[in-house]
Design a protein around this nucleic acid. Sequence first.
DNA 1: GATGAATGAGCGTTCATTCAT
DNA 2: TATGAATGAACGCTCATTCAT
Lengths: 180, 180, 180, 180
Amino acid sequence: MDKREQLIEIATKLFSERGYENTPLSVVCEKANVSKGLISHHFKSKDGLLREIFRKTTQLIAEINSVDNENKTPNKQLAELLESFFSQLESDKLFFQFNMNVMIQPNTRKVLDDLIQERSSFILKKTKEIFDKIDMENSLVLSHMFIAELDGIALNYLGIYEDFPLQQVKKQIIKKYVLQ
Amino acid sequence: MDKREQLIEIATKLFSERGYENTPLSVVCEKANVSKGLISHHFKSKDGLLREIFRKTTQLIAEINSVDNENKTPNKQLAELLESFFSQLESDKLFFQFNMNVMIQPNTRKVLDDLIQERSSFILKKTKEIFDKIDMENSLVLSHMFIAELDGIALNYLGIYEDFPLQQVKKQIIKKYVLQ
Amino acid sequence: MDKREQLIEIATKLFSERGYENTPLSVVCEKANVSKGLISHHFKSKDGLLREIFRKTTQLIAEINSVDNENKTPNKQLAELLESFFSQLESDKLFFQFNMNVMIQPNTRKVLDDLIQERSSFILKKTKEIFDKIDMENSLVLSHMFIAELDGIALNYLGIYEDFPLQQVKKQIIKKYVLQ
Amino acid sequence: MDKREQLIEIATKLFSERGYENTPLSVVCEKANVSKGLISHHFKSKDGLLREIFRKTTQLIAEINSVDNENKTPNKQLAELLESFFSQLESDKLFFQFNMNVMIQPNTRKVLDDLIQERSSFILKKTKEIFDKIDMENSLVLSHMFIAELDGIALNYLGIYEDFPLQQVKKQIIKKYVLQ
DNA sequence: GATGAATGAGCGTTCATTCAT
DNA sequence: TATGAATGAACGCTCATTCAT
């Protein structure tokens, strides 16, 4: 397997599990069976590796959203989006947490600034496309509120309340946005 | 002035501005005009100082919530709560960010675990007391959703979208929860 | 109880258990229920405390040896001395180890130099008084060998061989020196 | 020259001269013309460096003892052993002292525990092989006493009596064990 | 005699990065 | 591509000691 890909894969896993700042490159290299110099070689620096991982994730998000939504009703689209969000939230807890982390932590935030702008703009745009069909006038604010609500749920579920009632919240959210 | 208090004050400010992990104790001590050893003396360690700050903040939150709410309608209570939330979100951006940070970052999260439990339980309980009056049956889920929504707004406003339409979102939230 | 005495007692115990260099004064003060400043007050410094402890021990050794030996045969004296040595070696392991420690460790050795000279001269003199009666000509060398042999046994028993056959060695030593 | 070897060499010298605990790594690195990080790189920690030094010394002892003793009489073997012991005791005073030190000091003792076991077992085994030929029945106790006696002589010569009559003691010991 | 807040030098360790091979 | 020895700045922490009360 390509050592570069191997490095990204292992690093993503480790950064998710232990946090970016708490994962020395020495550990990444050890687990990936790769020498220290190779990271400099491929990614220039630790921050470069982080940027590559973040970029790849954004690409993945974009690909998922590239499915043809033209012929679907906005309700159908929201339903699918929520379904995918909640299932990922449960299956990829650590990866979710990692992404939230690097966007908040001042250090990484600075490093990723342009990429965060890019990703969040994309998400906002895609969300707004749906809400445009529902309420053209307020679609921007509605989109922001929609995104914020999901982020807040992720935040509370992942980081704060151990007994967060995810299933019931999911039901309520679907009722609110899909079955309204 | 009491050097212990001075230390807490300066540290809170610096941790908020630069993040906990990015603020060496040497800087804190320098700005507080205090020797390095004094932190060990009063707080045992850097983590000890963090815990003290977090604890104090929880106390502050508790004090604010200790006002008598018995005779107010739930709508009135929610209105006041939202007003206070949004005004603080604007005035204490950095402090908000700091609190969100330490709860997500794996390192600090571990250090503060019990204190986070304590604070979030308190917030949930107080919120639920309001929603109990509105919808006894679903009050727990509603409270969780309410808290998550506000957290999500803070997260997006503080960390993600530079042009987050805070005022319009505030208007919508008040409409939803107070003027329904 | 006199706080000064209390301090000496606790410090002796702790230094024996953990070693002088590994025992911070903060721990001594805590266990002795005494403030930090008091050590400076009574003993000037940590080294001063150590010297006081060492001095007291030497005094104790002197007192034990002050019994009247005039009318005893050298064999009787050696028998008593060996009996007392081996029984103390078993009962006061840690205290033995502590004394050996501070005499070897370069740091403490320097601090205690004069006191060590004093004590070891005394021991040599007392031992030589016995051997003078046995072999006047070689008494100095014999005394040195006798002391060295006992020290070596202590060293190996206390610090090196977990299964040092102390009882059998004791038997051999008594056979050699007393029943010859 | 290999920096790793250079580091071990300088560290051994400095630890012997000043004691392990009194020798900061900063000094070792400075004298060895090497950066601080290199110790982490090669030995993981200061304790790791100590272990490496101790291990190397044990190896050296083993090599010295690997000469063929099959055809020698036990008396001849003891003679050689004593000769080598006393000459080393005089020439490598500091190194002897260092080894004794780290075995007694509680801190280093803990760090080296397994290595001390290993070395002392080896020494005991080799000594016992000699005494087996002299007095099969008591060889274990005799070996322990022999080792203890030499250790005690080293201890008193190196650390306690400035005017220890080493030459005369040596003569007596040889008389006792070789010319008996 | 007794306290404990305050000091500050010094230590071992971590870790991203560089560079010769 | 790939290695890993080597660097060096930075950090949190320890702890004997001082001094005002």
